[in-house]
Design a protein around this nucleic acid. Sequence first.
DNA 1: CCCAAAACAGACAGATCGTTCTATCCTGGA
DNA 2: TCCAGGATAGAACGATCTGTCTGTTTTGGG
Lengths: 191, 191
Amino acid sequence: MARTSIQRPSEARERLLATASDLFYRDGIHAVGVDRIIAEAGVTRATFYRHFPSKEDLVEAYLGVEDANIRGAFAAAEASGAPPQALVGLVIDGLADDVAQHHTRGCPFINAAAEYPDADSAVRQAVDRHRTWFRSELEAVLSAAGTPDPAAGAAQLVLLRDAAMVGGYLDGWERVRPAFLSAARGAAGLA
Amino acid sequence: MARTSIQRPSEARERLLATASDLFYRDGIHAVGVDRIIAEAGVTRATFYRHFPSKEDLVEAYLGVEDANIRGAFAAAEASGAPPQALVGLVIDGLADDVAQHHTRGCPFINAAAEYPDADSAVRQAVDRHRTWFRSELEAVLSAAGTPDPAAGAAQLVLLRDAAMVGGYLDGWERVRPAFLSAARGAAGLA
DNA sequence: CCCAAAACAGACAGATCGTTCTATCCTGGA
DNA sequence: TCCAGGATAGAACGATCTGTCTGTTTTGGG
């Protein structure tokens, strides 16, 4: 059994985070207990609490993964070298593809916020940070493309993406897709 | 049949439902236990289970109340005798006021759906029924006003209302309001 | 080879979950 | 007057929750 990889990030920890992310997203946070997470990850209780002081820390790590994924997608799109005008279109299509393929159970942040009413909680703060970053990122993209009112356009795109996530989950993406794409392109000044 | 038709709404039952609705909406469904509901309603456990066979039934009743409230608001608007064209504007303004005043913690149906991943569950079916009714109601209003494509307009208004609910909760209504109103009026063909 | 860190195994605590139960009171209608 | 049904009061059920604890085994680096 050649275990060659240097497990700096601790393979058990990664398995824990991956399975927990899947369970939290699919079944909701409060509905998933520590027992289920450790059983499905094939890890013992002691190992769990070695890596995460409490379940809350695991929840925050889960949102951190989601946040990192989206930032990575934006970074990749920007690194593609596409001109600013085309980048706006790429971003919108990327958001649509993401909803269609990876986020068919709604937005992880919106769903988490539904379960955490306290606006001062760490989870809600993570949600706020994510949304603030997302809005400013969109604003930067629109601004680079020379859109007349980048702030207003970004605000509209945030709204439309929220709607796409919720509508895709509850009504089906095929029903929401055309309205999202036309409205998003309009908000981005793509005619 | 014979049962005496008095059957008054049982004041305890109404208190139970009102208290639970408030708690479910504010703190989430899974986060609110039966203990808290009966304590806050000033009712005993036995009384609770006399009126609701299980907590699930209470959850469904809660969504039923929300559904009835919105249907009532629509019925009132339609009973106002306003001409179809003006009715569209009244409905949009009514939706905005509702988000601003009564639904500052998001949409009860969206939040409930976030906690119920099983699409076949009674809760999700209630959500589906509500959304289907809402869409067709909007379509009827738009149709009566002579809007070119009522189905597409209604679909867009549903999306925009989802976005308004989520955005109002997470970003603050004042931030969402202008984008919602202009987009909604556009979708309804109000220029 | 040795040792410390990490994972395994699992019992356990204390609380809360939804639900059932028995027993007693209060009230309104026949 | 009698009595059924609604409400009160509270014990108790088993299950599950997060989190702690005591050990034992595995593993990798020096």
